[in-house]
Each structure stands twice: as structure tokens, then as C-alpha cells.
Amino acid sequence: MTTPTPTPVLITGCSVCHSKDRLSLCAGCKVVKYCGVVHQREHRPSHKTICKTIVKKTAILVQERKETAFFNAHGGGLSAILGSGSLVDPLLQLAQAQLQVDTQTAVQSGLSLLLEMVDITKDPRTGPPDLVPALFLRLGRDQEAYDFMKWWVTSPAPKGLLGPSAQPYADSKDSKADVFEDVDFFKGKCPSLSFMVALTLLKLRLLIDLQALQRSAAIGENVPREILDEIRSHLTSSAVSANKAVLERDDHTPDIKNLTKQVRTMYAAVQEGNSHFWPAVLHPGPNTMAWPESWNFGNKQEMQLALRYTYKAWLETPGAIEAIEELEGGKVDESQ
């Protein structure tokens, strides 16, 4: 059995001591914080390489924005679309560099860049459906992760190379999808292995939280209210912790059984799509560092890309990898 390890979390304070007092951003990358000059200097040897990369990628994007603005101002129409399209690669390159840094600021910035790409094009070759859902989950924005995935599979793809999608993502963000609905809706629609893996994790986060709520309800009469509130404050999924109706429900058994079925369905779908993935989640080895230049459906390289895009979200979800271990061994318990 996998030995439980402390669950890592995104750094929100000083990158050395994690203090949250008197923080300042690194003047270079602007996604790492320090409590003072001493810790900034201490961290510099390990931070220097990625900091320089982010600075370089930022400069490229800034220059591209200037050229795009000029192009749009003097072109308009088709020229404006072409000009905006030239931002796609610099946005992706900078986002990928920032996402090598495990701070909340870096993940938020990387996600914003990817969503800007989404506003420009809904072309699945550009990266957002692979990267965005897991980033929402890393930031604890589970409802938004599901809303994005639901929008992606329901919004028609652009017509032709430059055509916009029928419903731009920016216009759909106020629409809240039902995170508890059956995953059968996604059959045959998931654009990538990473997408399916993120959907599995989202459903698993919901399941883990409802199991915790069920256990807290069982002991509710024997412990003070403040202890129950403390238990509930540590729920993983914001889609559960922010749902008053779910939190106050006495019996979660029906939803637990439904979510268990959904998790099993997604687990099987991922397994069928790429048999390398779940074993790699349990024993990643060097796969999280691989960056294959090409891949085919179901091969090891596809697994490596999906693992690279989603593994940190799995690590940062308490109990998630242990749950996959149980599924791999066929020991999932619906009644917990």
C-alpha cells in the first residue's frame, strides 16, 4: 500500500519560510513572494533559472501585445483576428513557464493566460482543455473547473481556422453547471486524456468530501458544533464547502453511491483510453518530468503529458492517490 505522505499545498506566503507578513514579489518573475531580502537571496540559487525564463517569456509576450495592438488599430476586421491569433503561442509559452513554480500567484497567473487563449481561439490543439481544469482544481475552484469542462464539450468548435465559438467562454462564466450530474454526459466528448483525468479527480474530490460529511453527521450528536465546523472547514472541494444545502443535509448516502459510480466510470474510461496512466499516478518515477515531442492515443508519451498536466492537482488533494490505489486493487467502499 502507498505510504501516506503530507499533502503539499500551493505556497501563498514567503517561498522560504512561508510567512505571510510583509511580503514582496520577486522583481523578475513576479510570481514568487518573499518576506525580506535575506530569504530572497537564500532562494535565488534554486529560483534563478526559472525566474530568467519567465522574464524572457514575459518580454516576448509584451512585445507581441504591442505589435498586436498596432496591427489591430490599423487593420480591423480579418486583420484584427489574425493579430490576436499571434498571441496564442507567447501566452502558452509564458503560462507553461509560470506553472513550473508552485505558488498560488504563479498558478493564478498561468490560468489567466490560458483563459485569455480561450477567448482568442477554441482550438483544442492550443492547450487549454489539457491544462485549465486541473489548474482550477489546484486553486480550489472546483465549480469553475466543472463549468469550464461543461462549456468546452457543449460549445461548438469554431467554424474554419479563425471562426469564433458559438458561445465565448467569457460569456458563459455566470452559468453554474450541476457538478453532481452523471458523467455519461461526457461520453465521447472529452477532448483529451488530461481532460478525462481532471474530471475523474473533480468527481473524486466531491466523493471524498461527502464521505467526510457523512462521518461527521454520524458523530454530530456527540461532539461540539465547533469541532464539526472545523471538520467541514477542511473539505477539499469548494463545490461542496460552499454549498449550504449539501453541508446541512443529514444523509449523503444516495449522493455517495452516485458519485462512487461516477468515479468508477471515469476510472474505467481513463484505463481504457490509456492503460499506463493509473499505474503512473501511483508510481510516477521520472514520468512527471518527461516532455515528449509527439504522442499517440494510448501510448506512454500520452500518459506522460497527462501526468505532467494533472499530477500536482492529484498530489494536492488529500486522499486522492490513496483512492486510486484502492480502485487499482478493487477495494473501493461505497458506504464510507
Rank of each mutant, 00 (worst) to 15 (best):
A80E: 05
K20N: 12
Y311L: 09
G330A: 02
F195M: 06
A320S: 10
S46K: 05
F136V: 00
Q93M: 09
A69K: 14
P129I: 12
V101Q: 12
T103L: 11
S275L: 10
A170M: 05
A97C: 04
L206A: 05
T7S: 05
L247G: 01
A27L: 03
S112Q: 13
G163C: 06
Q98A: 06
V88H: 04
S112F: 11
E64W: 02
Q93A: 12
H74L: 02
V197L: 07
L207R: 00
A59N: 11
G160K: 01
G110C: 01
A323V: 13
T105C: 10
H234D: 11
I324M: 11
G127R: 02
D209S: 04
S192V: 03
G28L: 01
I219W: 04
A95E: 01
F180R: 07
A268K: 15
D184E: 13
P158Q: 00
K33V: 06
Y267F: 14
A157M: 08
G76F: 00
E116D: 14
K33L: 14
A166R: 13
L82G: 04
D21L: 12
C190F: 02
T5D: 07
V246T: 05
Y309H: 14
T265R: 15
K257H: 14
D21S: 13
H18V: 07
A268R: 09
S19T: 06
D178M: 04
K30I: 05
Y309E: 15
L315Q: 15
V179H: 00
E67N: 11
E293S: 13
P6D: 10
A134C: 13
R308T: 12
S19R: 02
Y169I: 00
D174G: 07
T265M: 11
Q214P: 01
H283D: 11
T2V: 14
T154Q: 14
V118M: 11
M289C: 12
P133M: 09
L315A: 10
K56P: 06
N287W: 08
W314G: 01
D174M: 08
A306R: 03
A177K: 08
P4Y: 09
D102N: 13
C29E: 02
A245E: 08
S294Q: 15
T317F: 00
R44L: 10
E334K: 12
T253K: 04
Q167A: 15
V107P: 04
L213Q: 06
N299L: 08
T5C: 03
S172V: 04
R308L: 10
F186K: 03
S237P: 04
L23M: 03
P286L: 01
V32K: 13
R225V: 08
I208G: 00
S24C: 03
L113E: 06
